[in-house]
Amino acid sequence: MAKKGKRYQEIAKKVDKMKLYTPEEALDLVFDTKSAKFTETVELAFRLGVDPRHADQQVRGTVVLPHGTGKNVRILVITSGDKIDEALKAGAEYAGDDEYISKIQGGWLDFDLVIATPDMMPKLGKLGKLLGTKGLMPNPKSGTVTTDVAKTVDEFKKGKLAFKVDKLGSIHVPIGKVDFDKEKITENFKTVVDQIIKLKPDTSKGQYLRTVAISLTMGPGIKIDPLLVNSYVSK
């Protein structure tokens, strides 16, 4: 394991690894853990009380952050005809059909999100392994398969996020940049947590939010008491 730098070690001393912080404490403390020269992303991590091996315990959805993520999402739209121009006018970096499918097959992945119209999904099937392993395969449940490409591109540009529980039962979501003020990060935090709670599967038994942590890109994780999150979000 790589040794952490002195700057990181000094920052890490501010965080008690054994403590479960209140949401208010964690949201204050995360701003004191800046250690990088670039503008770090504020990230939320959850471990859920679900078994992702079962289809009825998958947690997958979208959420629109009221203040966005602070990142320009590079969008590729796989579509045809007039919808290509619609996608580009709405702000997509790339839009097209067979040309881009061939580029991806050749190893091109210079984008953060793929949106597709339903008629193009059969063609995208051949890219399942390549896009699926990177979490880029369009899916109706994540809102990335649509006939209204202009509206969908606009929503993701303004801060809509798609998320999915991984095989370990975890979800990682960016909720802004460290140069956001605390109020904006707090509102984004509440929005994400509220949506994940709403998506609790009926078959999930016991404690649903097992662990919740907030951190910066290069900073230490700050553990939040999951039993306090519900009441905080509902304030």
Rank of each mutant, 00 (worst) to 15 (best):
M121C: 06
P118G: 04
K89A: 13
K182D: 07
S231T: 06
V193Q: 03
E40S: 05
D97T: 06
N230T: 14
K129L: 11
L48C: 00
D85M: 15
V149G: 04
L65C: 06
V114K: 01
R53A: 11
K167H: 14
K19V: 03
T69N: 01
V77R: 00
I84T: 02
E155Q: 13
G159L: 02
V73E: 08
E86K: 07
L199P: 12
D179A: 03
M121E: 11
T41K: 01
N230M: 14
D194P: 13
P66A: 12
I78L: 04
W108H: 11
G5V: 06
K123Q: 02
I224E: 06
K19Y: 08
G91R: 08
K157A: 07
K123E: 05
Y208K: 00
L130H: 10
T144M: 07
R7V: 15
G176C: 01
V30N: 05
T133I: 14
V64I: 15
D154T: 10
T203F: 14
I185L: 05
G81L: 01
Q195V: 13
K34A: 03
P23W: 01
L227S: 15
V193H: 03
G128M: 02
K13M: 07
P52W: 00
D16V: 14
K167Q: 09
E40T: 03
G91V: 10
T217A: 08
P220Q: 06
E99W: 11
L27F: 08
A116G: 00
L130N: 13
V149P: 00
Q58L: 12
L130T: 09
T147R: 14
V233L: 04
K34Q: 02
L44A: 04
D98L: 12
K141C: 07
K198A: 11
K129I: 14
Y232E: 00
P66Y: 09
T39N: 15
L131D: 06
T152P: 10
G70Y: 14
L227G: 15
K4T: 09
G159S: 06
G107Q: 06
T41E: 10
R60W: 13
P138Y: 05
I197T: 06
K151P: 10
M121I: 08
E24G: 04
K17V: 14
K71Y: 13
Y8I: 07
S80W: 06
P138S: 07
T33Q: 02
D179H: 10
L48F: 04
Q58R: 07
I115L: 03
W108T: 08
M1H: 09
T133N: 13
S170T: 14
D112C: 07
E99C: 12
K129M: 15
P118E: 15
P138E: 08
V165H: 04
K34L: 00
K200C: 08
I115V: 08
I224P: 09
G135M: 03
V229T: 01
V149K: 00
E187I: 03
K190D: 02
G206R: 02
A36Q: 13
E187L: 05
G176W: 02
K164R: 11
E93C: 12
N139G: 08
D16C: 08
F46P: 06
G176T: 04
G143Q: 09
T79Y: 03
K123L: 00
K200Y: 10
E40A: 05
L131M: 05
V50D: 10
I196E: 01
E25A: 04
D202R: 11
T152K: 10
K151D: 14
F189V: 01
Y21V: 02
G125T: 09
T22W: 05
